[in-house]
Write a protein that binds this DNA or RNA. Structure first.
Lengths: 136, 136
DNA sequence: CTTTTACTGCAACTCGATTGCAAAGATTAC
DNA sequence: GTAATCTTTGCAATCGAGTTGCAGTAAAAG
């Protein structure tokens, strides 16, 4: 496991206090985190600082963003070797009743054939419906 | 081609002035429309009336909503026989540079195998990147 | 015709995301 | 080492899509 400092060094992002705690929090969580999640976890760090930190991380491929159907963009640390390609990701299921998000590891990511000269940056499938608990 | 009145009758939605013009506008457009698009097109109809009309239409399967990566929910009239199933839909490509959305008719919708007792309501894949014009 | 229910328009509000600005901190030039 | 410059941070304010409360109007039911 790499430390926050090592990751930032590799990704050529200057280390600062805010960046360290944001990255540490993301690393410590199993699930992708929204800006609000991070804000709540880091009570003494300003929202806009976290926001700008996330943008910086994303630009430098320290993290990638996910739209999981909840309406809030979520962020997760890129795995080693992650190119933020669709193949590196998985889909999400959002329960419209209880607002929980589930990771769908079993649904294959389709091959995406884009028109000529289009460049793929990210792909994201959100499936919505009712989870087992709400589907009664 | 069905008239607005016929569609509303079939879907058992009471016909009103606002509903007619909103549906007429949606039918007249090639691309899915956002609330804002509709608001701009119908200068004298209130935003919240359009909003509630869209909700009513969606509940009664007159239209379905689409998340195309632009950040705004878009709406399109259901085709005849549309069950709003994933198979009835297509994916979208959102250009992060020029903010245009393209329909991806050629990308197959994957079979979605949900966990036991989960109920699918909608599925939506958004692909982001650069369109041919911006990828230079 | 009267009562009840549904629809509409306006204004206000929510909430996530984003920005302007000034202060603080870090880096570079001299 | 100190001044000038650039970057990061915190605060407050703003944006914009979506949503709601409320009162007036229109339509349906009795």
């Amino acid at each position: 496991m790499q430390t926050e400092e090592e990751i930032l060094k590799i990704k050529k992002v200057k280390n600062t206090a805010v960046r360290t705690v944001v990255l540490r929090h993301l690393l410590s969580q199993e699930k992708a985190q929204s800006l609000k999640d991070i804000e709540n976890a880091l009570a003494y760090t300003d929202r806009s600082s976290i926001f700008r930190t996330l943008k910086t991380f994303e630009e430098n491929k320290v993290i990638h963003s996910i739209e999981d159907g909840s309406g809030m963009t979520k962020y997760a640390v890129c795995a080693k070797g992650c190119n933020c390609d669709p193949k590196d990701l998985h889909h999400h299921f959002y329960c419209t009743n209880c607002d929980k998000t589930f990771c769908l590891f079993d649904v294959p990511i389709p091959k995406i054939q884009l028109p000529e000269n289009f460049k793929l940056q990210q792909a994201n499938m959100v499936v919505k419906g009712l989870c087992d608990n709400c589907n009664k």
